[in-house]
Every structure is written in C-alpha cells, then in structure tokens.
Design a protein around this nucleic acid. Structure first.
Length: 464
DNA sequence: GCTGATGCGTC
DNA sequence: GTCGGAC
DNA sequence: GTCCGACGACGCATCAGC
C-alpha cells in the first residue's frame, strides 16, 4: 500500500485552477479519487473542497489570516531533512490543531503550523493556506465533487447527490460510493439526529412571476425573519439543527420543552423558522434573535429578555417513514395533525392573485419578511434550490438618507458600496439606523457612487 | 480580572 | 443572505 | 437551471496581552 502525498493533491488543485470547464474539473478530480487508498478518500475529498470538516461536525480550526500571517512570516528557509507529507498525515495534523483549546492554545497551534509549513514546497504551501482559509478558488466544491464521485465510482449522479443531501458528510459519501458501490449508496437513508440539507427556495420579484412559474395549485406561507431550524425528536430526546446542520439545541430550552409537551409521536423530524418576539407576540428584528444564538452563558436570563417563537412548516420523517417523496399538501396535512397545539406558519391556498397579494401585504404589515410560494404537488428536494419553492421578500418602503458610505473591497473597491443609513426624526435630525450593502446591482453601485461623490463633504480614504 | 482582537455562524 | 459569471 | 466565488453586518465565545 502506498499512501498518496499531499504534493500530488496540491498538483491536482493547481491543475483545477487552470481550467474553467466543469467537465474537465470533474475528470481531474475523479481520476485522482480513483487512485486513492481507502483510508485516503474521505480526507482527500475534504482537503480538495477545502472544508476539513463535514458540515455536521462542530469542530473548527480557529485559524484564519490574522493567525496564519505571523506563522508565514516566521518561516525560516528550508529545513535540512524533508519528510514527505501525505494526505492522511496533513489531515491528522489539522484534526490535532482543531482539538487544541484553552490557555496557550494559539501558541501551540502556531507551533504546529510552523512545523507543518516548514516541510513543504511552495505549491503545497499555497494549498495548505487555502485549506486553512476554506477558500480553494479552483472551482470545485460540493457540486462538482459529487459529479466526480459519481464518475469515479460509476454510480448514478442523482443517487450520489441524494445520499449526500441526506447524510451531509461528503467525505463519507465518497468513501461509501467508492468502497461499497451502489448497494452502499442505496443504504444511505434518513436517520434521527443526523440532519439533512434543507430544501431551498428561489427568489421571485413579484406574485405575477410566481404564478407564471407555478400555474395553479399553490400555497402561500408567511416567510419569517429568523433562523431556519430542523428539529429531531426520538422519545424524550430533542435536538435542533440549523440550515447548515449545526446543532443549537442548548440555546433554546423552552423550544425543547414545547416540543416534548406537544408532540406525542416518538420518532419525528419537523422543520420551521425560529423567530424572536416581543411580549405582544410581534416579531423582533433578526439581531435580537442573535443575542440567543450561540449563547453559552446566561441562557436563562436572556430567555426571559428575548422570547422566541417557532413556526413549523414541514415534516420530513415520522415513525420510521421518510416523508421526502410525499407531496407538499399531504406533508402539511400530516404536520397539522401531529402538532395540534403548535403554531404552523400562517398560510393560504389560492389560485387568485388578488387574494395572494392581500395575504402578502398582511405578512409585510405584520412585520414579517415576505412569503414563500410552494407548489402543492411538489416533493421535498433536500439541499436543492428548485422553483417548487419560491420566495418573495418585501421591498424597502422607508424614507432614508445615506449619511455616509464606505469604499468597497475586492470586486467592489471602485465603488462606495456600504451605506450608512439614517431616517429624519421629528426634530429634523438624523437618526442613524444602521448600514447596508445589499440588494443592488453593479450598475446601481456605479450610479450611486457617482451621485454621492458630488455631495461629499469629507473623505478619509475609507469612509466618505 | 478586564479588554480588544479574532474566528465563526446566522442572515 | 446577495450578486455576477461560467457552464 | 446550477454551481461557484466574492462580497457585508452583527453577535457570541475565546484567548492573548495587559
């Protein structure tokens, strides 16, 4: 058995940067995967797409540019004896780095990085750095990787993709596909406490567009401005996962209790939006909800301060049975039967655009983000952005003044792309309300920059 | 023990 | 989360 | 239609440095 060197992986990555063609990228990666030893498959997949860990894995490196920069600066010239780094040895080093915590941990991590980097060629260094930043910039992420796994294993693309969307661990899926083949991939199924990738919605400009795409038979649901959550329950155990499959169970004890009190079914996976509300039940801004997100200390105290509400809108699994292939309207029916004392997302079913518009306007005036428009007959496509689900968000209807603007960075460096906003209050003074950069096209940035520069009263190179 | 910088994850 | 660009 | 990369604010925890 010969282990593959990290240099070979770096060469593959370099090759990927030389082409923009997806087919070619797929071929390069699949050829490489086919040559690997069994134990190398999963680490290689993660190192190529530049994520180290599966989405479901809570571990992180806690290293980024500011920590890596001093490491790179302190590197001496080549050491005398060079050990050949292999894919698995590099991966193990990353795992060790992720494990270090506590006082002096940054120092230890830096020492490990120094010894790692002092063993490598410039090409290896380039991609080791990108691995740490999680930005490979060679155009291969999950999507192309799934294609490559499919080619390398000779298995059907859609089966691999589906397995990945259900399992969430692309390294594991690659290993199963290449080792166990079709049989292994077919065995991948929904499991409790293993979150699946949530189905996504496509943006539409207005309801006309939505009706044109769907034709008849559609449902409109309120779209709440909060955190998308997937809730797994088995017996007395309940766990909550986010859109990116991170666990946030301990942040919302009252939700756990409510689930246990109101859902009798033993094994179930449901989905909804978690929002912050005030004492009257009106929605609070997203930032307020952030006070509870990732919180470890004073959970009980902040729980009183910022109450949350969970609005359910889908069911994915129930009593050993997957609901992914059940049409939307039947899933909703099942959901509403099971969770009688629970709030479901507010919704209507209609073919009438006027009725839909009234519903949408109600959502906005009640302080919500907009509506989701869903095809009644559509099944649940994990991890995919299909037009079975459409999202319509509110336009800004607020008289605001841009009081300052920051120069953008990267692609936006020529424009003033980040605007400090204010409203004018009763005393005719500016009340700063926040900043934004969203919702504009490049041309709009161009125009706004031009207009703002005419009005500028001060410029410190950064903020105008 | 306190504070600011840094990293991470939500949108 | 948004947007533009490549396929 | 789909995927990828390049962008931003904000809030929390952690850790280095004092």
């Amino acid at each position: 058995m010969t282990l593959t060197t990290f240099l070979e992986l770096a060469k593959v990555c370099e090759k990927l940067t030389k082409t923009t063609k997806t087919l070619e990228k797929t071929k390069i990666v699949s050829n490489f995967l086919s040559k690997l030893e069994k134990e190398e498959i999963s680490p290689a997949i993660f190192l190529i797409i530049g994520t180290i860990f599966s989405e479901t894995d809570p571990r992180t490196l806690n290293i980024n540019w500011k920590s890596l920069e001093p490491v790179l600066k302190s590197l001496k010239q080549k050491t005398l004896f060079q050990e050949k780094l292999t894919i698995t040895s590099v991966y193990k080093t990353f795992l060790k780095i992720a494990q270090i915590s506590g006082k002096g941990s940054q120092r230890k991590k830096k020492d490990m990085l120094i010894s790692l980097f002092s063993q490598v060629s410039p090409l290896e260094k380039k991609f080791l750095m990108r691995n740490i930043f999680g930005e490979m910039r060679h155009g291969v992420k999950e999507g192309v990787m799934i294609k490559a796994i499919s080619v390398a294993s000779g298995l059907d693309y859609s089966n691999i993709k589906r397995a990945y969307m259900i399992n969430g661990n692309i390294g594991e899926i690659g290993k199963i596909a290449l080792e166990d083949g079709e049989e292994g991939i077919k065995k991948v199924s929904i499991k409790l406490f293993q979150p699946i990738k949530p189905m996504l919605g496509e943006i539409v400009e207005d309801l006309n567009q939505a009706f044109n795409k769907h034709g008849k038979n559609l449902a409109l649901e309120y779209k709440y401005d909060g955190i998308r959550v997937q809730i797994h329950k088995s017996g007395k155990i309940v766990r909550i996962f986010t859109r990116h499959l991170k666990e946030i169970t301990s942040n919302f004890p009252e939700i756990i209790k409510k689930i246990l009190d109101n859902i009798e079914i033993d094994d179930i996976i449901v989905e909804g939006e978690l929002i912050a509300i005030d004492s009257n039940g009106r929605p609070l801004p997203f930032q307020d909800l952030m006070h509870r997100f990732k919180r470890i200390y004073e959970i009980k105290k902040v729980q009183q301060l910022i109450p949350v509400s969970l609005l359910l809108f889908d069911i994915i699994f129930c009593n050993g049975k997957s609901f992914l292939n059940i049409p939307y309207q039947k899933r909703w029916k099942k959901l509403s039967e099971i969770v009688k004392n629970f709030d479901l997302a507010k919704r209507i079913i209609t073919n009438n655009i006027d009725e839909a518009n009234i519903f949408y306007n109600n959502a906005i005036s009640e302080g919500h983000e907009g509506v989701m428009i869903k095809a009644l007959t559509s099944i649940y496509h994990p991890g995919e952005r299909k037009n079975d689900w459409l999202k319509l968000k509110s336009e800004i209807r607020l008289d605001i003044v841009i009081i300052a603007a920051d120069w953008g960075s990267g692609r936006r460096h020529k424009w003033l792309s980040n605007y400090h906003l204010a409203v004018i209050d009763e005393k005719e003074e500016f009340q700063v309300i926040g900043k934004t950069f969203k919702g504009l096209t490049d041309q709009e940035f161009e125009n706004i920059t031009e207009e703002l520069l005419k009005l500028k009263i001060n410029d410190n190179q950064y903020t105008v």
